[in-house]
Each structure stands twice: as C-alpha cells, then as structure tokens.
C-alpha cells in the first residue's frame, strides 16, 4: 500500500494520524465546495471542524465514510486509502464508523430500543439477550433510561440526539462522527450534549471523534484540536487555546459572532 506521502503524526496534538485528507476537491455541478482540503484527524482525540453553514462541513465527513467520492485528492482511514476502493470495500470501511446526524435521523417506524439495536441486528449475529444487554447499557450511558419504548416523535430534540449517539456507539466503532450535535438545542441542552461528548470520549480512550459545528463556544471545552474551514479550505487549525488567544480577524469575528470582519453575509 502506498502510504509514502501520508503524514504519520498530527502536527497540532502530536498524536498519530487516524484520518488524513490530502488536497481533496469536490464540486456539485458548477458549485465548487471543497478546494484542496488538507486535514489530519488525530487518533483517540476529539477534533472539531468549524465553519459557517454551507461551507462544506457535512460534505467533508460524507467523504470519509465513502458516501461521496472526491473529484481529486486522497483520503486515508487508518492505513486504507479510500480513493481506489470499490463500493463493496467502502461499505466495509463504513462499518468502522458511527455517525450522529444533525437531526438524529432515527427511524420513526421504530422505538428507541429498536433504533439503537438496529446496527447490531443488521451486522452482528447476537442472541437477543446479548443485544438487550448492549442496548440497555448504552441507554443508561446516554441518560435515556425509561424511554426505550418511546418512538422518536415522542422524544424531545435533545433526547433524539442522545438516542442517535447511542445508536452510533452500539457497535463500538473506531471513529465517531457528530454532525452539528448542538445545533437547535438550548444553552443548557448544549452544555449537556457537550458533557456527553466529553464523557463518551473519556469512556472510550481509543475512540477517534470528529465533530462538526458552527458554534465555536459549544466546542471550545470538548475539542483537542479545532480546524476552521472556509470556502472549501482549512484556514486555521490549532488547539482551543490557539483560537481563544488568536487576534486573527476571521477567528475574532467567528468567536464574537459579529457582522463586521472578513466574512460577509
């Protein structure tokens, strides 16, 4: 396997590289979304991609799961390079991921228990008792005890995201992706979700987390590394301290949520 040019270590955290994007380009018709994205996601840490709505954050994580293919550039997951893979091989890569969707994307024909059990029942041959044990443990971990027989329409937004997190975790994935986990939650639920992400990270030391957000404040406390995306390229990357102490006008504008600055509406 040709991993010659692939960086082995993340320069920001010093941790080994788990996911690498190298000069990734992607357009939808005339709209160029990614314009040579370079990104290293460190193993066992929490990395946050931050950027305005519509800059291509969701597109970025869809690439790493093989749901989209780049027009140009290379992407590694561990030692596997995705670019050359067949659909069947990509499907196998997907099994190493868990993803928490922006609106949770729970199946509304199933209750919470069956939603969380779904990946187990699809991909692992377990006895129903084992499924039950795994699912109930996760339900307790995300704080949904007593709600296992509720259907998604009976849950609040915060509870849905918790159920989505439990479903993403149920097969003990290597990588966990969160698409805007706190968007649409009130400040208290945002803090609760942040704590859940941090706790999940602490409980699974080998888990590599990648969080997408447009809310800088919500991620400062959970991130080990922050990557700022603008117009399809990485414009800044560093530790949370780097971002809070920076006087770069783009970062200041983003932190302040201000209309004045290099970014225009």
């Amino acid at each position: 396997m040709s991993t010659g040019e692939r960086p082995d270590v993340d320069p920001v955290t010093g941790h080994p590289a788990a996911i690498v994007y190298q000069d990734v380009w992607k357009a939808f018709g005339p709209h160029q979304i990614l314009r040579g994205l370079d990104l290293v996601v460190p193993r066992g840490r929490v990395t946050v991609i931050i950027g305005r709505s519509g800059t291509g954050k969701s597109v970025t994580i869809k690439h790493v799961m093989g749901l989209l293919r780049p027009d140009k550039g290379r992407i590694w997951v561990g030692d596997d390079e995705l670019t050359a893979m067949s659909d069947r091989e990509l499907r196998r890569v997907r099994l190493r991921f868990g993803i928490v969707f922006q609106q949770a994307a729970l199946f509304d024909s199933m209750d919470v228990f069956d939603n969380i059990a779904f990946p187990l029942r699809e991909h692992e041959r377990l006895k129903e008792a084992q499924v039950r044990e795994r699912v109930m443990a996760l339900i307790a971990q995300v704080g949904l005890r007593g709600s296992e027989r509720k259907v998604p329409s009976e849950l609040s937004g915060g509870m849905r995201k918790r159920a989505g997190l439990a479903r993403a975790l149920v097969r003990s994935p290597e990588f966990l992706l969160y698409d805007e986990p706190t968007t649409g939650l009130d400040p208290i639920l945002t803090a609760a979700m942040d704590k859940l992400i941090a706790d999940t990270d602490a409980a699974h030391p080998d888990l590599t987390s990648l969080v997408i957000s447009h809310d800088m404040h919500a991620v400062l406390s959970i991130a080990h590394k922050i990557v700022m995306l603008n117009e399809g390229v990485v414009v800044h990357e560093g530790t949370p301290d780097y971002f809070t102490s920076s006087d770069d006008p783009l970062i200041r504008q983003f932190l302040a949520g201000s209309l004045d600055g290099p970014m225009k509406v």
């Binding site: 609106q103 994307a105 779904f118 991909h123």
Partner: peptide
C-alpha cells in the same frame, strides 16, 4: 420521501445497510 428528507436513508447508507 420523509425518510429521505430527514436523512434516514443517509443513515442506512452510513450504517452500511
């Protein structure tokens, strides 16, 4: 259609189903 617009179909894809 509802499953599509609420990303439930994407979720199936993402779960390799």
């Amino acid at each position: 259609g509802t499953m599509r617009v609420t990303e439930q179909i994407d979720a199936l894809d993402a779960m390799a189903v």
